[in-house]
Design a protein around this nucleic acid. Sequence first.
DNA 1: TTTCAACTACCTACTACTAGGTAGGTGTTC
DNA 2: GAACACCTACCTAGTAGTAGGTAGTTGAAA
Lengths: 191, 191
Amino acid sequence: MDTRISLLDSAERAVRQRGFDGFSYADLSKEIGIRKASIHYHFATKADLGFALIERYAERFFAALSDIRNSDGSAAAQLRSYIQIYRDALAEGEQVCLCVALSAGRGSLSTAVLEQLNRFHAESIAWLTEVFERAAQDGSVSGCALPIEDATAALALVEGAQLLARARKDVSLFDQALAALIARLTTHAVH
Amino acid sequence: MDTRISLLDSAERAVRQRGFDGFSYADLSKEIGIRKASIHYHFATKADLGFALIERYAERFFAALSDIRNSDGSAAAQLRSYIQIYRDALAEGEQVCLCVALSAGRGSLSTAVLEQLNRFHAESIAWLTEVFERAAQDGSVSGCALPIEDATAALALVEGAQLLARARKDVSLFDQALAALIARLTTHAVH
DNA sequence: TTTCAACTACCTACTACTAGGTAGGTGTTC
DNA sequence: GAACACCTACCTAGTAGTAGGTAGTTGAAA
């Protein structure tokens, strides 16, 4: 069981740095110190590994979003927490979040993984839409349009900003891209 | 010479759909009908092909940006044209623009290609910064912050929106992500 | 005006290597 | 003794890249 987790950890890092096509069972084998064939004991196919990766990631991610929603901060505060998740995921500009990495190298993904990916996006937008709906009430975010449009834009923004930051290996590019949105967030709820 | 262009066209489509690791010389060979080995005559290594791709793409792209700048539209109108380029590049949600595709599958790119990629981003941000500076003067874009921050955000937004749209193979997701920005663009210059 | 060398754009046939995946065996633990 | 977690040894298919050869073209000297 420990090996399985090591495999997932190692694979996740690899995907987020180099994409799903950017690592092999041989790479994992070297990194965690078991034979290549033994990896197939834990994940029969690479597609299975991919599915396990996104499943675990979604679980963690949505748990984090749930925590943020249950905190009784303003919409602005919740958005700030959301952005921080994506910023932390950058890890010095070395990697992007798993869902960006998979969206990117879409070529060789199984349909099951692609479904999970779309679920991921849909749920993210739904969560953000709720936040922007609350923002319309508590007035903690300025310059709002339709909640679902603000939500989709916010998702595209953090994902695109991650891409830029990783390409230049420089987190400050992420900050520069997010600055305008963050400037719209007040420090305290208005209503 | 015709073959060289066919190769570039075919490779560009492949990269934009499936990433740089997502196609092989064998694929190109089948598609344009010459032997795999003959491709090496035109592009000695795959890295060379990658460099030729981004070089050609950058040339076209920045020529288009130059045309937009030389048109005497408002900042808002120029932004609309810029967004339209990215929207057109989606081609029914099948592909993303080359620079997004390369940013994504960053794993196996040569340093020369990575340099070009960063140049691409830098020049895009510079171009957009100029547009937002003009917007601050002609008042055709509402809700502006610092030009360079708006510029970086706009770049991240269109790139992220492309990623989302391709993942769901649905251009309307791109439109949804861009709606809020487009809503800030007035139809006529204010000053 | 023929001849010859060089060049272009391809070819067949290969190399060396990596990919994911499989068959079947081994030692340890419950 | 059976399930578990690993192993060695292998397979097939595909990867980029190379060696060496060949029609057809071009351009200039004999």
